[in-house]
Design a binder for these strands. Structure first.
Lengths: 147, 147
DNA sequence: TCTCTATCTGCAAACAGTTGCACATGTATT
DNA sequence: AATACATGTGCAACTGTTTGCAGATAGAGA
């Protein structure tokens, strides 16, 4: 059984269903290789299947579900909306500059010691996937005091 | 000149104004010793000054301003609203359990190495005040696979 | 004290995202 | 293939928060 089949089976065993709407959202996330907003996912579905419409509420519910079963990350990049990405490859974190809105992608291993310490000290299993750390990039720190 | 006066002066010099509405929001934050939502701040203002009303938009704008000048933290604790707190004393971070919605407050120094590494490696000045780390607490990890 | 203007406020409209409810459907069982 | 019911969907209403705009005002300077 492939990883994919095994995953589906495991989800079904827990009472989850693989509906057409959920397949469409997953397919959209696979097509867009970057982080996508809920609206971009909706647009992608419309572009590929003009005759099908998926309710926004369903897209949001599907994304929350995918996040809860650890298949998708949900990240704020300082915009007015969340962005979503399939987990498992190309994992990274984001440094989001509050001055210029720039985003630096960084290696996820920088948070490994924190994850380990939280587990050891508090028994807490942190979910730290595609998170954002806000602050000021090197360039924007220079003019900070005139702001 | 006191720290407070110096702060006010510094803000004024940068074109910021200390309006009655901003004073009221600050006063509300000083009264509530925990994290407060925008609505709790509005209620506090009404309770203390029943004849004065401050528009919700103004409260949100004031909170964003206070956050931008590093006087206040803005944190999601997994609820449907943000919470705000004055910075400077009682600093900590939060472990938010996505199973039981519990919040564990932890010592902020756990992120110091990360902050230092981000500065050294990327020149990035991270703002890591009263942040939330989401995940599962020890108890909620036990029944995870039946979810 | 008065003037001036960039900043701030209130209002209303907009936005991203969530929720309640009635109906629809995926899937386990037979 | 038919049944049965828990789970999922669409719709509409709602939440928390942001934004555009016109009028108000804090605070610098005369």
């Amino acid at each position: 059984m492939s990883d994919h089949d095994e995953l589906i089976h495991s989800l079904r065993a827990r009472g989850h269903r693989l509906t057409p709407q959920r397949r469409l959202v997953l397919e959209a996330l696979q097509h867009g290789d970057h982080h996508m907003s809920a609206d971009e996912i909706a647009q992608t579905i419309i572009a590929h299947y003009p005759s099908i419409s998926v309710d926004p509420a369903t897209i949001y519910r599907t994304l929350r579900w995918l996040r809860d079963v650890d298949l998708v990350s949900e990240t704020s990049l300082g915009q007015n909306h969340m962005v979503y990405a399939l987990l498992g490859s190309d994992d990274h974190h984001h440094l989001v500059c509050e001055g210029c809105s720039g985003v630096i992608e960084i290696d996820p291993s920088i948070l490994d010691p924190v994850r380990q310490e939280l587990k050891a000290r508090y028994g807490f299993a942190a979910r730290l996937a595609h998170i954002s750390i806000f602050g000021l990039c090197a360039r924007c720190q220079i003019g900070e005091h005139e702001g």
